[in-house]
Amino acid sequence: MHATNERLKMSLYAALMAGITAILAQLTIPLPLVPITGQTLAIGLCATILGSRYGTLAVALYVAMGAIGLPVFSEAKGGFSILVGPTGGYIIGFIISAYLTGLLLEKTRFSLAPAIAANIIGMVITLIFGAVQLKFAAGLTWDQALSGGVYPFLVVGVIKAVLASILGITIRKRLLAAKLLPVHETKAA
C-alpha cells in the first residue's frame, strides 16, 4: 500500500509540473524563427525536482496535452501539427532532456554543481533536437538552422539552466525536508 501511495503522490507531482510547464511556456520573447520561452526552464525544474522517471512523466504529460490540442505550447498553441512543424523538435527534445538531466542527477548528486552541468547538457540536447527538425521542417540549410535555432539560445539557455538548478535543488531540498518526496527515489543533496 505504501509503494502505491508514493507512486500516486509522485504521479500527482508530475501532473502538477506538467501544468507549471504549460504556464511557463506562455512566457515568450519572440524571435524570427523560434521564440525564447519559459518551457526550457520548466523542463529543467521537472527533472531537477522529480528525477528521471517522474520528471520525464511530467514532460511527457505536457507534450501529450499539447499534442491533443490543448493550448499549452508557447503562445497558447496546441495540436499535433506543432510537433511536426519547425519548432516541434524542441518539444520532442524536452522529453529526452528531462530524462537525461534527471538520470545524470541520480547518478551523481542532487546538488548545485551537478544540477547545473546536467541542466546545461539537457539544454544542449533540446537544441540539437530542435535544430535538426527546424532544418528539415523549414527547409533550411544547417547554417540557417543553427543561426536561427541554436546560437541565439546558448547564453539564455545557460542562464535558464542555472536558474532551474538553483530553484530545483532548493525546492527539492524543502520537499525532502517536509517528507513530501521519497528519499529512496534518488540520492539526496
Rank of each mutant, 00 (worst) to 15 (best):
L104K: 08
F153S: 00
S147M: 12
A22D: 00
L50Q: 08
A178W: 11
I49C: 03
I159W: 08
M1Y: 06
L41G: 01
V183I: 15
I92Y: 01
A178C: 12
L163R: 03
A164W: 03
L181Y: 11
T37F: 05
Q39L: 05
H2V: 11
I23S: 09
I91Y: 00
I36Q: 05
Y151M: 12
I20P: 01
L103F: 14
L134F: 06
N5V: 00
F129G: 05
G51C: 11
V183Y: 12
I171K: 04
Y90T: 01
Y90N: 08
A58W: 03
K9P: 02
I91Q: 07
A177N: 15
P35R: 02
A47L: 09
G85R: 01
K173A: 13
L61M: 14
L140F: 10
T126V: 14
L163C: 10
P114D: 01
G89K: 07
L176Q: 14
E185G: 10
I20K: 05
P182E: 15
L70C: 12
E185K: 13
I159K: 00
V34E: 07
M17Q: 02
R53G: 15
F153R: 04
A118S: 13
S165N: 09
A137P: 09
A60D: 05
N119S: 13
I49V: 15
L100F: 15
G122C: 09
M1Q: 11
K9D: 09
I125C: 07
G55H: 05
A138P: 10
H2A: 12
V155S: 07
G102E: 05
I49M: 10
F110Q: 03
V84P: 08
I116S: 04
G38I: 00
G130T: 05
S111D: 14
V158K: 06
V162I: 15
I166F: 14
A137N: 06
A117E: 03
L127W: 04
V72C: 08
V162C: 09
N119Q: 14
G139Q: 06
I92W: 09
R7A: 12
A177P: 10
E75L: 13
S147L: 10
I159P: 00
A47Y: 06
T21N: 06
S11R: 05
P30F: 06
G44S: 10
L112T: 09
S52L: 01
T56W: 00
L154Q: 08
A164T: 05
F80G: 12
Q26H: 10
L103H: 13
G89E: 03
Y90E: 05
A137W: 00
T87N: 09
Q144K: 12
P71Q: 09
Q133N: 02
L100D: 06
L180C: 13
I43C: 03
I43V: 15
Y54K: 03
